[in-house]
Design a protein around this nucleic acid. Structure first.
Lengths: 107, 107
DNA sequence: CAAATATTCTCCTTTATCGAATACATGTAT
DNA sequence: ATACATGTATTCGATAAAGGAGAATATTTG
């Protein structure tokens, strides 16, 4: 073990996928905070993003600055084929792990 | 962030649940290795098990030694109500995260 | 005491967490 | 026009927690 995605890598990768062409640091931070119901800070976003770039699961692309007052240029992130494969691999493992756990669904 | 289960905690907690009254170090190790398709070592099992006890997600129970030649007594693990809640919480987050990701399902 | 099974321990690397510091673009007052 | 204020976004750095590998130790029976 274990070349599986870490928890944060999983959550961030899925967020990038969901946000499509609008995935950059801040929007990812907001999205994962909303989804998980907890407040995420910068460090918890940019560090794994960096790692995901290294692994080739994401690529980044410098965007234009916002035309509003203030607004440093965003860095957008896009899921690669390898990133998608990593998610598929995880999904397959989840099938085995979570399948046949009926008692959890009753509440 | 983040009081969410870590990846290993999740996998091990689910394995304990699946193995019912037969969950102890070695059987958990074999189960997670089989499910994830990777070889897990002792350190990757007993350390998080200890953590899960501390968190109250598991309780342990000393078993009888195996009647075969050799066989130190096993320590069995049982999921608590809190442990089940932690899994349910994770399951709920997965719903949001993984829902509406149709492209992943094609393969 | 030999052999088999199970767990504990130790060392080291990698992730995770938090928030201050910095960068960058634009509005505004002089 | 130019300095400074303001709003957005990212980089950095320090510390804590989790992950990873496998040797060492304990326990039980032949």
């Amino acid at each position: 073990m274990m070349d599986l995605l870490t928890r944060r890598e999983e959550i961030i990768l899925l967020s990038v996928w969901k946000l499509k062409d609008g995935a950059y640091g801040m929007s990812i931070k907001d999205h994962v905070s909303q989804v998980t119901g907890k407040k995420w800070l910068f460090g918890s976003i940019y560090t794994p993003l960096e790692k995901l770039l290294e692994k080739g699961y994401l690529i980044s692309e410098k965007g234009e600055p916002t035309p509003e007052r203030g607004g440093r240029a965003k860095v957008f992130f896009i899921l690669t084929g390898e990133g998608l494969d990593a998610l598929k691999n995880l999904q397959k493992i989840y099938e085995f792990l979570w399948d046949d756990i009926p008692a959890l669904e009753v509440r």
